[in-house]
């Protein structure tokens, strides 16, 4: 990037940004965590989940796609912002089947960890949609339980941009939009367990499952048992 770096403010803290950086990229570098689900390091930004929504000079914008600008005043970690985020996370719980006690991803799941961070102890304000989508266990090394998919598109971007494959894609529109495989089932795609799209870091939830991994690391000793989601970023703060 060219051009002079500049300063803007997140919750009153001065943050330095380079031209072209998003609000989230600048915040990450400064050790300020902005909650997110569809954005992940190493993949292009999508701006789909809206969990990262902040107020920038009074306007609601997604921090993962909105460029930082000189003198911008950003509202991030406030009760009002976090309440909206919690509602979004809660709706995701109601949209899929999220029975954490039986889920292999429990403890490593970003959706669950976001619920913890946003202090969502129970999701019962909305009716459960209880989808009934068939499990795709056709592939020898990978299984798909799309009842847990949050349509974040991370697998789509990873497969397209990193693996150069296009194993996943969106089908349908609006509330019916779903992530599906480009084939009759996963066994009829060129998916491999070594793909970046299948790695633990890409699917934030327990939808893409690598077989034979299961409960090798026991419940209680997993990633988010050691700290709130985002704590690694917050620890960078000077």
């Amino acid at each position: 990037m060219t051009g002079e770096s500049f300063v803007f403010h997140i919750d009153g803290v001065a943050v330095t940004a380079k031209p072209g950086q998003t609000i989230m990229e600048a915040a990450d570098a400064a050790g300020i965590y902005i909650p997110r689900l569809c954005d992940v390091e190493g993949l292009r930004h999508q701006g789909g989940c809206r969990v990262c929504t902040v107020k920038a000079d009074g306007r609601s914008v997604s921090a993962c796609t909105q460029p930082a600008a000189p003198d911008l005043k950003v509202e991030n970690d406030t009760p009002a912002r976090n309440r909206v985020r919690r509602d979004l996370v809660e709706m995701l719980f109601h949209e899929g089947n999220h029975l954490c006690p039986i889920c292999e991803k429990s403890g490593n799941c970003e959706l669950q960890a976001m619920a913890y961070r946003l202090e969502m102890t129970v999701a019962t304000r909305f009716p459960y949609l209880e989808p009934c989508r068939e499990l795709d266990a056709s592939h020898p090394d990978i299984a798909l339980d799309t009842n847990r998919c949050i349509s974040c598109g991370r697998c789509i971007r990873a497969s397209q941009d990193v693996d150069g494959k296009g194993v996943f894609g969106y089908v349908g529109r609006g509330i019916h939009r779903r992530v599906a495989v480009n084939g009759a089932d996963l066994a009829h795609t060129d998916a491999a367990v070594t793909d970046h799209a299948m790695s633990a870091a890409v699917c934030p939830v327990g939808c893409i499952i690598r077989k034979d991994e299961g409960f090798r690391v026991p419940i209680g000793s997993r990633h988010f048992d050691h700290g709130l989601i985002g704590h690694e970023i917050e620890e960078k703060r000077e």
Partner: peptide, 18 residues
Amino acid sequence: GQCAIMGGLPAMRNAIMH
């Protein structure tokens, strides 16, 4: 616990209720 709060493991059967 989760069973009392949201049905928990027994609620796995709810998903076939369609």
